[in-house]
């Protein structure tokens, strides 16, 4: 090739300045979380206790696990508004299934195991249905999942006659350790959250599938022209989120042993907020699982701190959450 000095690239100094900027934006959520934790400790020293930390992390687990799946969907340029309703319906169906099986199978442990598996399978199937409607049916994801948001919750309300679906006591006794037991001082839901997050980060950053998800969200046409099977990847993304909802639900059921029409209300917004606060763009293309995890923790820390103090009027709780979300978004905004 001819040796010339044309098409001059920007010199390295410029590059470095830009990457510093992007690093700042990456640490935005962490910075926000650290500041919140300092504030929490100052307001109530109990905030910094191990027990409280575990409480917060355990609580975060449901939303966090769903948010990891949501992160994939949002990066691919999609959205899923139905996750809260889906969780509630899966919980209800799984409880009904287990109660029914308990009549014919005499081993509660087996029944619970079947219930747990059913939870993940149901989630995957619901997600698959979303994916197929969106790709084959060519319907906007917003509309598809807005539709199922209503459908899932209506069916739960129907199954429960508007009341609660409650797990049999014997099954509940067998199942509840899944939520309440700790392994090496860390509750099981937190372990599961950790595993899902690590697996999510690996899949997103270190597999061809993850790269394709980013490619589709960044520019679907380019991905299509680059021989990426766009429809299949999208379907897989929604199925993955469904499975995450299933996992979250199988941890949720043993907590209260019931599902009611108010279960999982607004989880979709919390999960989406966790993803976005964590630095993923709502328009898709790129995002981070670690950011999402931090975003989810951050959101539950806010309400935890508010519960641990009486400094702020209870009427203003929602306002405080709003302010913190906006401030964190400001810290991590793109230049």
């Amino acid at each position: 090739m001819v040796d010339r000095q044309l098409d001059q690239p920007a010199p390295p100094r410029f590059q470095r300045a830009r990457s510093l900027g992007s690093r700042l934006h990456a640490v935005g959520p962490i910075l926000g979380l650290v500041l919140l934790c300092v504030a929490g400790t100052l307001l109530n020293p109990d905030f910094a206790s191990l027990d409280n930390a575990m409480n917060v992390l355990t609580r975060t687990a449901f939303i966090g696990i769903i948010a990891v799946g949501m992160c994939f969907v949002i990066i691919s340029g999609g959205i899923d508004l139905s996750v809260g309703s889906m969780a509630a319906l899966i919980a209800g169906m799984v409880i009904l299934l287990m109660n029914t099986l308990a009549g014919s199978i005499d081993q509660p442990v087996l029944v619970v195991a079947i219930g747990m598996a059913a939870s993940v399978v149901l989630g995957g199937v619901f997600g698959l249905a979303h994916g197929l409607l969106i790709t084959r049916g060519r319907i906007e994801p917003f509309i598809v999942t807005l539709g199922t948001l209503g459908i899932f919750r209506a069916y739960l309300t129907y199954f429960s006659n508007g009341g609660a679906i409650t797990l049999d006591d014997t099954l509940s006794d067998v199942y509840s350790p899944v939520y309440y037991t700790s392994v090496i001082g860390v509750p099981i839901p937190v372990w599961v959250f950790l595993i899902v997050a690590v697996a999510g980060a690996l899949i997103l950053n270190r597999t061809a599938y993850g790269r394709y998800v980013q490619a589709i969200g960044s520019n679907e046409q380019v991905a299509r022209y680059a021989a990426v099977n766009v429809d299949r990847i999208k379907v897989m993304t929604y199925a993955l989120l469904g499975a995450c909802v299933g996992i979250a639900t199988l941890l949720y059921v043993p907590r209260l042993g019931s599902s009611s029409p108010t279960t999982g209300l607004l989880w979709e917004l919390e999960a989406i907020a966790a993803v976005i606060v964590g630095g993923t763009a709502l328009k898709g293309g790129s995002g981070s699982i670690i950011g999402t995890v931090i975003g989810a923790v951050l959101l539950s820390v806010i309400s935890n701190i508010l519960n641990l103090t009486s400094v702020i009027s209870v009427y203003l709780n929602a306002a405080v959450q709003g302010f913190v979300i906006i401030i964190v978004a400001f810290l991590q905004r793109r230049k």
Partner: peptide, 12 residues
């Protein structure tokens, strides 16, 4: 529009 992901790195 169809050839490159301009927001991606060269490697990707």
């Amino acid at each position: 529009g169809k050839g490159l992901h301009v927001g991606f790195g060269l490697r990707e």
